[in-house]
């Protein structure tokens, strides 16, 4: 492979902001792909067992179920928080740093409250994970959503603190932009979980 010398780069070497930003965006998108596969596997498991209804025991007659609206409420809060985060990002792009800090702050508060609501939901299920395959699946999806919420809350606290001390500028919005994409993904995952658990009864009765 023939090579020629480019501009010499002395000891301290850094790429330009946009190159680093695009690189980080690519990496985070690939990590999101891995998370999509994980969440997809949990949703697949739910529908697979529901469709199979082995021994008619997916959800036996009279067995308790989770109220559907709670899952949707948690997902809706996630969507609202993602909206605030994107509003903050738009503010950053316009150079409005106050909007950045307040927008992220609201988004983080909503996510942390949402995490608390998820914990309350898990604690107040009227069944245990050992009741049937439906119960096991609902617990697991709720647990995965809680993990998302806590992780996003921690990342959100970090980015809020960095925004507060002036680490972001309109010329370099990449980190906020990338975290906004993650935020949208967990909102989508939350909707996916709520939608999944809305399909309760097995269509395969009596097999």
């Amino acid at each position: 492979m023939t090579t020629t010398a480019e501009v010499p780069v002395p000891g301290q070497h850094h790429d330009d902001v946009d190159a680093v930003g695009r690189r980080q965006l690519t990496g985070v998108c690939l990590l999101i792909l891995a998370d999509v596969a994980f969440v997809g596997a949990l949703i697949f498991s739910y529908f697979y067992l529901r469709g199979l209804n082995t021994s008619n025991a997916w959800l036996s007659d009279g067995a308790a179920t989770a109220p559907i609206w709670v899952g949707w409420a948690i997902a809706a809060a996630l969507v609202v928080s993602a909206g605030f985060f994107r509003w903050a990002l738009a503010g950053l792009r316009k150079g409005n740093l106050d909007r950045l800090v307040s927008g992220i702050g609201v988004a983080v508060v909503i996510v942390l409250l949402d995490a608390a609501a998820q914990v309350v939901q898990i604690m107040s299920f009227s069944f245990k994970p050992d009741a049937n395959a439906y119960a096991s699946s609902v617990y697991t999806l709720a647990g995965a959503n809680l993990f998302h919420l806590v992780l996003t809350g921690l990342v959100g606290l970090g980015v809020w603190n960095r925004a507060r001390i002036g680490k972001y500028t309109a010329a370099d919005p990449w980190q906020v932009h990338i975290i906004a994409i993650w935020w949208v993904w967990i909102a989508v995952a939350g909707i996916g979980g709520a939608l999944t658990t809305s399909f309760i009864a097995s269509p395969n009765i009596g097999s």
Binding site: L52, T54, S55, N56, L59, S60, Y134, S136
Partner: peptide, 24 residues
């Protein structure tokens, strides 16, 4: 994911892979 489900079965009495509980 398969190991998360397995741990729900093993530590919480989950039914993911137990046919009598609707698992497979």
């Amino acid at each position: 994911a398969s190991q998360v489900l397995l741990q729900v079965d093993r530590t919480q009495g989950g039914q993911f892979f137990v046919a009598s509980g609707g698992g497979s």
